[in-house]
Simulated scan of single mutants.
Amino acid sequence: MSKTMIWGLGNELYGDDAVGVIISDRLKRTPPADTVVYTCYTVPGNYVYAIKRERPEKLILVDASDMGLIPGDFRRFSIERISDVSFTNHDMPLNLMLNQFDLETFVIGIQPDRVVLGAPLSVKVASAAEKVERILRREGTDEIAPL
């Protein structure tokens, strides 16, 4: 049983929307201790089975999130806040999908600069991705300012 599960969300075709996918792909190469990492792309609902199988204590979702911040800024917020921000939940509302589980769940949202078909990851969001990856590797999510 892993104590932490990380889901990277996003669409690699839309510039900064790929940031969650990029972070999870990097983390999967050498996952932090007691952590299992999934790259969910735009279909997090397909990974609910993993929660049932792995029974983590904590689920961290990482995705681009339009929070009205400066591009590259990132914040931590409760899954219940998804309706309060422009968060791409990609399929069934995540709070409804995940509320059935008894586990600590939160989102690390990264403010995108550009979400345009075919655009590369922006410099500011690429820098944020490196910072968020380092924070996740040392289990320092409490360092991330809440939204």
Rank of each mutant, 00 (worst) to 15 (best):
M1F: 05
M1Q: 08
K3D: 00
T4C: 10
T4E: 04
I6Y: 07
I6D: 10
I6V: 14
I6P: 02
W7Y: 14
G8K: 04
G8Y: 03
L9N: 06
L9V: 06
G10H: 03
E12G: 10
G15N: 06
A18F: 01
V19Q: 02
I22H: 02
I22D: 01
I23R: 01
S24V: 07
K28N: 02
R29S: 09
R29Y: 03
R29Q: 12
T35W: 05
T35G: 09
V36N: 02
Y38P: 06
T39P: 02
C40F: 09
C40V: 09
C40R: 04
T42N: 09
P44Q: 12
G45E: 15
N46T: 05
A50G: 06
I51F: 01
E57A: 04
K58V: 00
K58T: 10
K58H: 01
L59C: 05
I60V: 10
A64Q: 05
S65M: 06
D66H: 07
M67S: 08
I70F: 06
P71W: 11
G72Y: 11
D73I: 00
D73V: 03
R75A: 11
F77N: 01
R81G: 11
R81S: 15
S83A: 13
D84M: 12
V85E: 07
S86P: 00
T88D: 03
H90S: 09
P93S: 03
N95V: 00
L96R: 05
M97R: 01
N99T: 11
Q100W: 09
F101Y: 15
F101M: 05
F106W: 03
V107G: 06
V107S: 06
V115I: 15
V115R: 01
G118A: 10
L121E: 12
L121M: 15
L121W: 14
V123Q: 14
V123K: 15
V125F: 03
A128T: 12
A128S: 12
A128D: 13
A129C: 13
K131D: 13
K131N: 11
R134H: 14
D142I: 12
D142A: 15
A145F: 10
P146T: 13
L147N: 14
